[in-house]
Design a binder for these strands. Structure first.
Lengths: 196, 196
DNA sequence: CGCCGAGTTGAACTGAATCAAGAAACGTGG
DNA sequence: CCACGTTTCTTGATTCAGTTCAACTCGGCG
């Protein structure tokens, strides 16, 4: 079966040896999701960590007024899961949805634990992923606390230039914690400053 | 030497065996910090993960207007570190400061890696800590995106009831992403609703 | 006693939300 | 390939939550 995108990513990672990669690829499934398809809904337990081989996922919540709030995006070569749910076994409060037709590799939490127990290299690999995740979350919190809307938008652009063209503007607004109208105005303001 | 608080915490953790605990306690140092003392400043590399045996730490950043923003608090039995710095080796952009006279256990990143390599149980322990950290950060982001100031305050109270009395109000305001005046008004509003 | 940091309060202000409407882009079926 | 409805984006008018600035109180502490 064609697990090339995932295999290539794992191979490029220095921490992992052939045996570990083989074992991981054996135990993980893969599945195609059409644009708009939902991989996880509130109330469900998140069973997998998703690796995005192709396409784009987003995680979002719904507040009590029915408003969506984007927690994160995951384009190619990113992992996405609701760790609150998949690791701690709680019911999730989030949606995970495919924003494009996507090829997803699915890893079960128990297999991650097993691999960690058997391969120190995999434990370090996993450790690195978690630290990376924490780094992003921390930077985002700091930005939400410190920066006005425009700066958050600028940081978003420089961190995720590709998403700018793949994701509708109102979702970016949601990710930034402002309304679509708000982001529209921020953009107009920026543009007007630029051409005098 | 008296490493009892840390030993007790580690012993109560199911993942860890005696040998691992012994090794960890051997390699980690301990130090007392007075109230107000700074454990990490911007520009430095964060060399340690801090375990709080007694006392209270906070991590905060300074924005370009000189305003403080509290990233997190760490009371007894919590770990604190700037993982962006200690793991990725970058210079930190945060302060870590003791809010009370504190007894701190210091663990070096390299020792964590070593323990992970030698003890699968420790890898799982570490894994759990990281997942816990991620869970908190994610919940906070969701709250910052979804909830108005008052709800964020209510969540803070129910999550960290003890901090309410140990931390000055203006720091809690900073943690919540509002001004001290803002929080003062929120509290007045809540109180007035309560006694009619 | 006097000082200083913490908390409160009021008045004016502001960044962003809301509401409503129109324009542009997009997709789908005929 | 066009026609249609739907979604996205923009714009304006209004409202609102929360900020800013300044004054005042309170309690602890040298």
């Amino acid at each position: 079966m064609n697990n090339l995108p995932f295999r290539a990513f794992l191979t490029s990672n220095m921490d992992l040896e052939k045996a570990e990669i083989k074992k991981l690829l054996e135990t993980c499934g893969q599945q195609e999701f059409a644009k708009g398809q939902v991989l996880l809904s509130p109330g469900q337990k998140c069973q997998h960590t998703f690796y995005v081989g192709k396409g784009l996922l987003r995680q979002y919540s719904l507040d009590n007024k029915g408003k969506e709030h984007v927690l994160q995006f995951a384009p190619e070569e990113w992992f996405m899961t609701d760790r609150e749910s998949s690791y701690f076994g709680q019911e999730s409060i989030y949606y995970i949805e495919a924003l494009e037709d996507s090829l997803i590799f699915l890893i079960e939490e128990q297999h991650i634990i097993q691999l960690m127990d058997n391969f120190p290299g995999f434990a370090e690999f996993n450790n690195k992923l978690l630290h990376n995740h924490i780094r992003h979350l921390q930077q985002r919190i700091n930005s939400l606390l410190s920066d006005p809307a425009e700066q958050r938008y600028l940081k978003f652009i420089s961190t995720y230039p590709d998403l700018l063209v793949r994701v509708p503007q109102w979702m970016i607004a949601s990710y930034l914690g402002i309304t679509p109208e708000g982001l529209s105005r921020v953009r107009r303001e920026m543009a007007s400053r630029y051409d005098h």
